[in-house]
Design a protein around this nucleic acid. Structure first.
Lengths: 337, 337
DNA sequence: GACTGCTGTCGAATCGCTTCGACGGAGCAA
DNA sequence: TTGCTCCGTCGAAGCGATTCGACAGCAGTC
């Protein structure tokens, strides 16, 4: 293994000079720097991560805690993880993958052994058991999602409340007067994952504000449940012409189910989903949607963390504003509707 | 931060004794060990990961390289990653997440900086550009998937060839005489990802062996493509009664498309998929399938790596035998079929 | 009773890098 | 010329573990 002393000897300088040339923490003359860079290149030198971490007390590694089994949509999680890795690399950091299964002990372990410099925690619950720990840890963290009490933490997420409102307003502007929200499976509400409730709140508030009739329905993510839900909505709310879906795997099955029941989308029923753009675009009939911007959230979470690592102030809450794209599943309410 | 010398002082022993008590590399009397453990507990000691890595030249971290954009089914990748993390933790290792985007340079970086002890590489292509590097690296690696020339490497995957064969034999035993394979999107074949070709080979060989009529059709993973494919198969192969699907997102759309064309599953058409059990079970009509055992592959990949780290011999190839589960989409060929 | 062989522990060296203080020389002001 | 400041570089002291060789004490052997 080639080490910093080898480089130093080869370049005719001292090890500390090589170190400073690499880190830029002290001025080094252009000439010397070039000689050092040449030596590094010809010798193929790479600083030893452990030695560096020991000496500098920085590992340049971030922990990412991903949900294990949850109501969360898998592609969203994956997309998110990839964007975190990509963003971290831009800041010369790597990403250690932890599963939620490890729980608090896992967080404590990677933090206390100085294996990571900072943590990103996904799928935060309203009353998450890990909150006290995250507050107490000597390492900065960023949460994806909002707990009941975010003070003293750094949280980021899509503004789901505004997203729910945006969907309703879009429908209202198209003339719809009776709308329904089909949401996450019941256990997501029970687990208090926050975002489900926030969508509901925004949805209901906007509907009330515009004087629309509205109902909310949690729903399992299966085709059978979709079919039942479609029938039930038709039966219980005959005037329904606008539907908001916040349940990724259910978007297409619901649309299909309504079709089978004889409703045309968007002519008889307008559908707007809260889901990733990729999904909305690729549907057989592209779906009007509010984007769930996993990549943006991941990238921004890393930026926040980098600021915290540099002791710069960051906002406690970051709510990304919803972006609604009208595609082909929403249309003005027809005369017959 | 509490360090090993603090523990040593508290327990009235030398630091090296603490280290040996922790690692078990030399005998320590029961009494001393207990005193040390008590001190560790009361002081809340955790060994510094960097210091440990530097001294022992072992970081206890594995790298996992996941595909970025690919024909691979996202939930399979995720499932796989989670099982790798879980298995690694059982061996007191952590997992560093790399994206394929980083390419060879990324592998070289984490290996040469001694950030990781070993690597797991997913989505290996037949003529993967990373193979020479992986052969040359001073750190062991395990590949998920088989390149054209696996010699000198350690590879593991489902035995896709046997899986293709198993599907055909299952259909043959039910009396079917004309079968088709609907496979991955064309680009997966072009990218030479190996598993697509292997399924085809096993499928065709088994069909020939049993004297069945067989055809193979790559297919995009969209609903529209599924519909076209169903129509085309019906038109071109009127005698078709057995279908093998090796394309996760297409399984349900294909079944739906055939239904819409008036075919009953399994009465008129038997369908067997190569897909994760979870997907097969959760379908509206549970699908007969050969399991893609991501979790097993991930766990076994970690075991192989652990053996290699201990210098134990491991097989160059590990092919997991296919496991076919008959559910509700396959039935004996009907008289009319 | 001297010798051999364990068992259990210690001390010191070492891993490879960062960082702090020091210092020589150049540039500039008085 | 003297005295100050910077700039660029060096040397040495850590960072916090692991590991190797040494050694004391005790048991068993001839």
């Amino acid at each position: 293994m080639v080490k910093i002393t080898d480089v130093a000897r080869h370049a005719g300088v001292s090890p500390s000079t090589v170190s400073y040339a690499l880190s830029g923490k002290r001025p080094i003359s252009a000439e010397t720097r070039q000689r050092i860079e040449a030596s590094i290149h010809t010798l193929g030198y790479r600083p030893h991560a452990g030695a560096r971490a020991l000496a500098s007390s920085r590992s340049n590694v971030l922990a990412l805690v991903v949900p294990f089994r949850t109501g969360m949509h898998v592609p969203v999680v994956m997309q998110f993880a990839v964007s975190v890795v990509t963003a971290a690399r831009r800041h010369d950091h790597d990403v250690l993958l932890l599963t939620q299964e490890e729980g608090e002990e896992g967080l404590r372990r990677v933090a206390d052994t100085a294996l990571v410099d900072a943590l990103i925690v996904m799928d935060v619950q309203l009353h998450d058991a890990r909150l006290p720990l995250l507050r107490a840890l000597d390492r900065p963290s960023v949460l994806i999602g909002f707990p009941a009490e975010p003070r003293g933490l750094t949280c980021i997420d899509l503004d789901f409340e505004a997203a729910g409102g945006a969907c309703v307003r879009h429908l209202a502007e198209l003339g719809h007067r009776c709308v329904a929200l089909v949401g996450s499976p019941p256990e997501v509400y029970l687990r208090e994952t926050g975002f489900a409730q926030r969508v509901t709140r925004g949805f209901t508030a906007a509907a009330d504000e515009r004087g629309l009739t509205s109902t909310v329905h949690p729903c399992e993510a299966t085709q059978a449940a979709a079919r039942d839900m479609a029938q039930r909505l038709l039966r219980e709310h005959p005037g329904l012409t606008g539907l908001v879906v916040h349940n990724e795997p259910l978007v297409q099955p619901l649309i299909d189910a309504f079709r089978e029941l004889g409703l045309r989308v968007p002519d008889d029923l307008s559908v707007v989903a809260i889901c990733p753009d990729a999904q909305a675009e690729q549907a057989p009939l592209p779906v009007s949607n509010v984007a769930v911007p996993s990549a943006e959230i991941g990238a921004e979470a890393v930026e926040l963390l980098m600021h915290k690592l540099e002791q710069l102030p960051v906002p406690e809450s970051t709510l990304l504003p919803p972006r609604l794209t009208r595609r082909q599943t929403t249309a003005p309410r027809s005369a017959s509707g």
